[in-house]
Amino acid sequence: MARFFIRRLVLLVAVLFAVTFLGFSAMNFLGDPLFNVVGLMAELDCEAIEAGSAEDPSLDRARSDCETVAEARATYHLDRPVPVRYLLWVGDMFTGDFGTSFQNDQPVAEIIREKLPETLILLIMAQIVSLGVAIPWGVVAAYRANRAFDRGSTVASFGLLSIPNFALGVVLLYLLSLRWQIFPSAYESDSVVGLVFSMVLPAATLGLPLAASYQRLLRTDLITTLQEDFVHMARAKGLPPMRIMFRHALRPSLFSVVTVFGVSTGAMIGGSLVVEQIFGIPGIGREIVTAVVRDDFPVVLAIVMLVACTFVIINFVVDLFYSWLDPRVRAR
């Protein structure tokens, strides 16, 4: 167990470095890094401006811009090679300095702190929706495998899996909010109840397609498990069917779901960009899209890093979760 854990940990650290380095170099190699940091000011011909008449008041503005550029070069160490810059940047990240938005000079750490809760609530609610729907759905489908309900749910999940997130969001928004007016159409933060209620549709948009895929996985694994000897044994022990289903068959059938849980969190994070847009949720997803559109690179970079690292860590935790699901993994 200890060795297993250490090996995973080493891999985790390696992947985190690789992921951040990849993101960092993308920002530095694709396009002009100076531009990425100071925007249009990078185009200024500072030497010419310096050389210009010191008296000329029309150049005052340009001169201060040039100072900003020089400052940026210094803060972002733009005259150093990329690997060095990367290490300096990682160092900054460790001290909690995530950079500063050059749209509004707000520290990125502060932006993240402000927007993260909304996104977290959304993602957690979405996972609750997907598991809450998928587990009963998969259990019933497997219990009555190949009967009408099961066949119907195959078709339904096929459909759900073919609707892109944004399309499902728009359809749900139209039907449940505008047409039948069951849920609010926009984000509310006045009260906790209102907040949760306004998050139901976004969470369903993210969670339902996932529920369909969880349901498929769970159903297939359950059908296999239900043919295992130990299920027969449990029946020979005289335990009632639903007790066997939940106490004996479910846990060993959760492997695929747990495996996909990590990846699906990635898909969900991607989906949250879109969903926050549709339902006007002021979260990380909307922030990054806005930042991309405004070429606010420090924000983009910091959020991408945050998201990628979270994703890597979630998958690491999921791997550890296996050992709870199957004690045999611990022995390996």
């Binding site: 993101g23 990635g266 898909a267 991607g270 879109v274 899209v289 983009v300 990628a308 994703f311 890597v312």
Partner: peptide, 9 residues
């Protein structure tokens, strides 16, 4: 290790 849409962005 990148969520697909995030890498694309």
């Amino acid at each position: 290790s990148f969520p697909a849409l995030v890498l694309a962005i």
